[in-house]
């Protein structure tokens, strides 16, 4: 049904987007919690930095990633020397680029749902002997879970469709970093590949639709399960 190249692009896309989500989910929730529930110096700055990828041209983000995480970048050179890890031109690099681009979407959605949790419930839990961490794990996060799932799916979809930062930082290498959008771009650039372009376009639409359906199903399931749950911890 799918050609080998299409299968390859689809697989790389899912792999890259899944890894991107895995990288950012914990820091994303943490940052959202800080922004939703705490006052600290530099909060506005943190909020701004988190939102930068949303407003910067993706190419700029890709360029900044090269500067910081490239072989001669501040962190990149350290990674290379210490662990022998080089991110540019690898699928892991593409995942990093996708993760950075998806980060603000995740944080925004999680922050909104955390803010919707009644702080009075958290205060009540504190008086019952729960530490801040336990309150977060047993009260705040479960009550915000539908929003966290929505944010996660949004971030996954964003990483899946990432183009500019990926091609700048990880390039367009068949079988390594050529995700669906990059494959589509390549076929469009090649004369006589109009049919292949249309097929890739259809695959992209199908994947996007599928992730929306899964998100809706997960959110519903969580709400149902939460409405019938006993002591978690």
């Amino acid at each position: 049904m799918l050609t080998e190249l299409e299968q390859q692009a689809l697989w790389i896309s899912l792999q890259v987007a899944g890894s991107a989500l895995a990288i950012i989910v914990v820091p994303g929730i943490l940052v959202a919690w800080l922004l939703a529930r705490h006052e600290f110096p530099g909060k506005a700055l943190l909020d701004g930095i988190v939102h930068l990828p949303l407003v910067l041209p993706p190419v700029v983000v890709g360029y900044l990633l090269l500067v910081v995480m490239g072989r001669r970048g501040v962190i990149g050179s350290w990674l290379l020397e210490t662990f022998g890890i080089s991110l540019p031109f690898t699928w892991q690099g593409a995942a990093l680029a996708g993760g950075v681009m998806a980060f603000p979407l995740l944080v925004r959605a999680v922050r909104l749902s955390l803010e919707a949790v009644d702080p009075k419930l958290e205060a009540a839990a504190r008086t019952l002997g729960a530490t801040r961490l336990r309150v977060f794990i047993t009260i705040t996060l479960p009550l915000a879970l539908p929003g966290v799932i929505t944010g996660g799916v949004l971030a996954f979809a964003r990483a899946l469709s990432e183009f500019g930062a990926t091609i700048t930082f990880a390039s367009n290498i068949p079988g390594e970093t050529r995700t669906l959008p990059l494959a589509l771009y390549s076929t469009i650039q090649t004369p006589g590949m109009e049919g292949a372009a249309a097929r890739l376009c259809a695959i992209s639409v199908a994947v996007a639709m599928a992730s929306l359906v899964v998100s809706e199903w997960l959110a519903r399931r969580t709400r149902r399960r939460m409405a019938g749950r006993d002591t978690g911890l």
């Binding site: 419930l121 205060a123 839990a125 009260i139 479960p142 409405a227 749950r229 006993d230 002591t231």
Partner: peptide
């Protein structure tokens, strides 16, 4: 201020 996601026992 009961926790809405736990049963009464929880």
């Amino acid at each position: 201020r009961l926790f809405p996601h736990y049963r009464v026992r929880g």
